[in-house]
């Protein structure tokens, strides 16, 4: 659906994105990076607001810059917090719907549906200037989905939402992805994104750091062994047996003598071996977790490299 080929974008002397090549297909894809990493620039390139300085961006095989054919099929929820403040939420979404080419009745119907999806039906008649941050985010999403686009690009959509709102927002996105839509969500809050998808694009200082499945990316990071914390009443005995395994690098007993932290380069083999070993030796395990098997750690490792 979206193909970026050696895309770079300069703002005068400053580089926004640098030589990025990737493809984005259906499902939810997270665009991750710290503030200023180039996420918004990428979004603007894909939504045809900007032209790449070098390279090419294709959406459905078309150049997206100022291209109405592309805009018919993409919805964009920008990260800016600006609105035509004199309008009500309903009027704003209706206008956006009309600008998609729908006649009055169809535009009304579609805007009502979109407003309902984001849970704003009861507050849509209020003026936008009186909206909270969360309400503004919802209305931004409503205007992005009002024309039922095939690709939805959301720039930092979870900013300002309360926990319930975040949950609802994620459910909406999951529903859209389930319908075969391509949803691209940019964020710098990794744990939120982790709940939505395992398909990632990581950017750092304008460069593409990694792209693909979160698990695959994590597995490729061999410089940093996986840490696994095991809660057991026999940590020393378990440590002794585990250290016999060739893929276990270290084992550290917890200060409370009730846990063990193991480092391994091959977590899959470790998880295969652990049940057999504990059963054979009669060691009870009361808890098991992998503290660095999350996006935050993956991102940290990649940035440090």
């Amino acid at each position: 659906m979206i193909v970026l080929d050696s895309v770079s974008r300069w703002y005068g002397q400053v580089i926004g994105v640098n030589d990025i090549t990737c493809e984005i297909g259906p499902g939810v894809t997270a665009l991750l990076g710290q503030n200023g990493a180039g996420k918004s620039t990428l979004m603007r390139l894909v939504t045809g607001q900007l032209r790449p300085t070098t390279g090419s961006v294709k959406v459905f095989g078309l150049d997206p810059f100022a291209n109405p054919e592309v805009y018919k099929r993409i919805g964009y929820c920008p990260d800016i917090d600006s609105f035509p403040e004199h309008l009500s939420g309903r009027e704003f979404v209706y206008r956006m719907s009309r600008l998609c080419g729908y006649q009055e009745s169809e535009a009304k119907k579609r805007s009502e549906e979109a407003i309902d999806v984001v849970g704003m039906s009861d507050r849509a008649d209020k003026s936008l200037k009186g909206y909270s941050k969360g309400m503004r985010q919802r209305i931004k999403l409503a205007q992005a989905i009002v024309h039922d686009p095939d690709i939805l690009l959301l720039d930092e959509p979870l900013n300002g939402l309360d926990p319930v709102g975040r949950r609802q927002f994620m459910d909406v996105l999951a529903g859209l992805a389930a319908k075969g839509k391509s949803v691209i969500v940019s964020s710098h809050v990794l744990f939120e994104v982790e709940k939505m998808t395992r398909s990632l694009i990581l950017v750092h200082r304008g460069r593409l750091l990694a792209s693909g499945d979160f698990g695959t990316i994590r597995a490729l990071i061999d410089r940093h062994p996986h840490r696994i914390r095991i809660e057991t009443d026999s940590p020393r005995l378990l440590a002794a047996h585990l250290m016999c395994l060739p893929f276990v690098l270290s084992a550290q007993i917890g200060l409370n003598e009730a846990s063990l932290e193991v480092q391994t380069r091959e977590p899959d083999k470790f998880y295969d071996e652990l049940p057999r070993l504990t059963l054979d030796e009669g060691i009870a395990i009361t808890g098991l977790e992998s503290p660095d098997n999350n996006l935050e750690s993956v991102f940290q490792y990649l940035v440090e490299r």
Partner: peptide, 14 residues
Amino acid sequence: QQTIVYLITRPVPR
């Protein structure tokens, strides 16, 4: 006011 973004990402010829 940055509201231009809503106008230029709609399927309307500029």
